[in-house]
Simulated assay, not measured.
Amino acid sequence: MAGKFSQAFRESLTFPQNLVWLLWVAFPLYGFMASNFLLPPDDGYTRQVVMASLTVDISAVEPLVFMVFNLLGVIPMAYALLVLFDGDEQPLPAWPFVILSFVVGAFGILFYVALRRWGRDVEGAKSRLQQQLDTRTGPAILLIVSLLLVIVGAGGSVQSYVDLWQTKPLVHIMTIDLVLLLLVLPFLTMDDMRRRHVDARAWRVLVVAVPLFGVLLYLLSRPKLIDRGASSSGSPV
């Protein structure tokens, strides 16, 4: 394990993965500076947004803030449906970083993305979790939730959101978090296309042009991953 980790780390220091490392370091540093020096201190707005999300009280906050905050719960699930299919070819298991991403967003998952070995076929048999995730149910639920959140956000004010972005640390940091997550998501999706032998230029254009919905539509229609462990042993899954 240590040897695989050290080799993967050396490989990750080359372009373009070194850019992901840069983002992983720069994001929390900027977040600290913005929260403590560049923006006014939190005045309870974070708690207000959290409570509005827990109680689904859309009227309690700016609709666009409600949308972005809750999309940051949807997008890590999309990441999970991609990286949890990684196997023994990776230096570290993906699940701890997926869980961490629900708490700290991009900072949690970017470490795994930077260290991840790209362009590799999945090694080992499909686990029970992978078999359960390789369905259309999860992507369908995420797509419906995302559509509902966008409908909610459409009732908001862009100018109001910009004002909050300039004055509220939560809105400022979570907006950057959303951008980073959506920036990396299409590349993981295209790597998933490669290992599932999905060769469609239209899909690549869609996931880059419309990162969230393009990815969710792909996840909804992608073929199941071949269980290489079962095929090599000749035993059923």
Rank of each mutant, 00 (worst) to 15 (best):
T137G: 02
I141S: 10
P28T: 11
L100H: 00
S53T: 07
A114F: 04
I151L: 14
Q48P: 00
F32V: 14
S146D: 01
L143R: 06
V74K: 03
S59N: 09
G87C: 01
F37R: 11
S12C: 11
Y79S: 06
G73Y: 14
Q132H: 12
V150L: 14
L149W: 02
Q17L: 15
R128I: 09
A94R: 02
L54P: 00
R10I: 09
S53C: 04
E11N: 12
V113N: 05
R47L: 12
Q90K: 03
G44Q: 01
P41K: 13
S59E: 10
L110N: 11
L38Y: 10
F107G: 04
V74L: 15
L100E: 05
V104C: 12
P76D: 10
P76F: 08
A94I: 06
L39V: 04
A106V: 12
R116A: 10
I109P: 05
N70Y: 05
F9R: 06
A26I: 13
V152E: 00
G155I: 00
P96D: 02
P93I: 03
L100G: 07
W118Y: 12
G124C: 00
V50Q: 01
G124S: 02
W24F: 15
R47G: 15
K126T: 01
Q7T: 12
P16D: 14
L22P: 03
P28Q: 13
Q131C: 05
A80K: 02
F27A: 13
V122Q: 06
S35F: 08
A125H: 02
L81W: 04
P41M: 07
L82W: 03
P139F: 08
E123Q: 13
G119T: 07
N36L: 13
A140G: 09
F102I: 00
D134A: 08
S127W: 01
T46R: 08
A140I: 11
A52P: 01
V150Y: 02
T55H: 04
G119P: 06
T55Q: 10
I99R: 02
V65I: 13
A26R: 06
I144Q: 02
A34S: 15
M51K: 12
M51I: 06
A52V: 03
L110T: 14
E11T: 07
Y45L: 00
P16S: 13
V61C: 05
I151F: 04
L23D: 08
G155H: 00
R10N: 02
V152I: 14
F111I: 15
L84A: 03
S12I: 11
P139V: 09
R10L: 13
K126R: 15
S35N: 10
G73S: 10
V122R: 13
P40V: 07
K126H: 09
V98S: 04
F15S: 14
I144W: 04
L92I: 15
F85D: 08
A8V: 08
D88T: 03
P139M: 09
M33V: 14
F9Y: 14
L149G: 03
W95G: 00
N18Q: 13
L19P: 07
A154R: 00
M33D: 05
G31H: 11
L72P: 06
L64S: 09
F102W: 12
L23N: 08
A60T: 05
Q132R: 15
V150Q: 00
G31I: 10
A52M: 02
Q17H: 15
